[in-house]
Amino acid sequence: MAGDLDLTNRDPNSLNSHVKVSFEDVLGEPEGAHSIDCVWKLSYTCFTCWLGLCYKLSTLLCGICIAAEWGCEFAEVAFYHVWFITPMLKMCEMNCAVCTKLMRTCLSCCVEPCCESCGAVFHYFKK
């Protein structure tokens, strides 16, 4: 499974495209309010460096544990579906089939003769 892992495109389904942040998305100086060029360049360098460093440090310290927790959560959901929810739905489907058969029998015994009689009476009315 790890052999199929794409280390270049780590969000192939664009799950987190809303989190893309760049320096220009956060800071911008309007015309007439420019800082010294070296301050602007150093601000860019600091921003991108600290963004990358803090993200990498956070993932190093917490990412593996959080991934393990999400793996357990999805395993639990799969377990419930396989061993509880699907069998319960099958049992419900089987019980509903019995109720459907019982309802059809009752309707064919009680309601169908009345409907046929009414139909026979109105059959003789002609224009």
Rank of each mutant, 00 (worst) to 15 (best):
T8Y: 15
W70H: 07
K20Y: 02
T86W: 04
M1D: 12
C99W: 04
A97T: 01
C65W: 15
C49R: 02
V82E: 11
W40H: 00
C49G: 03
W50F: 13
A97L: 10
G28E: 00
T86Y: 05
A97R: 05
K127Y: 13
R104M: 04
W70Q: 11
K90H: 07
K127H: 12
E29K: 12
I85V: 09
L51F: 07
L42H: 07
C92E: 12
L107D: 09
G32R: 02
F79Y: 15
A33F: 15
H123M: 09
S58M: 12
E29T: 07
K41H: 06
K101V: 13
K126G: 00
V21C: 07
C46P: 00
E93H: 06
M94N: 07
R10P: 01
H34L: 06
N95R: 15
T8F: 14
L60H: 15
T100F: 06
C65D: 13
L102V: 13
L107K: 11
D25I: 02
M88H: 04
L15Y: 13
I85K: 05
N13G: 08
A78W: 05
S117Y: 03
T8G: 12
C62I: 07
G52M: 05
M1A: 06
S108D: 15
L53E: 00
C92H: 06
C46T: 02
I64L: 04
S43I: 00
C54Q: 09
I64D: 03
I36V: 13
E73V: 10
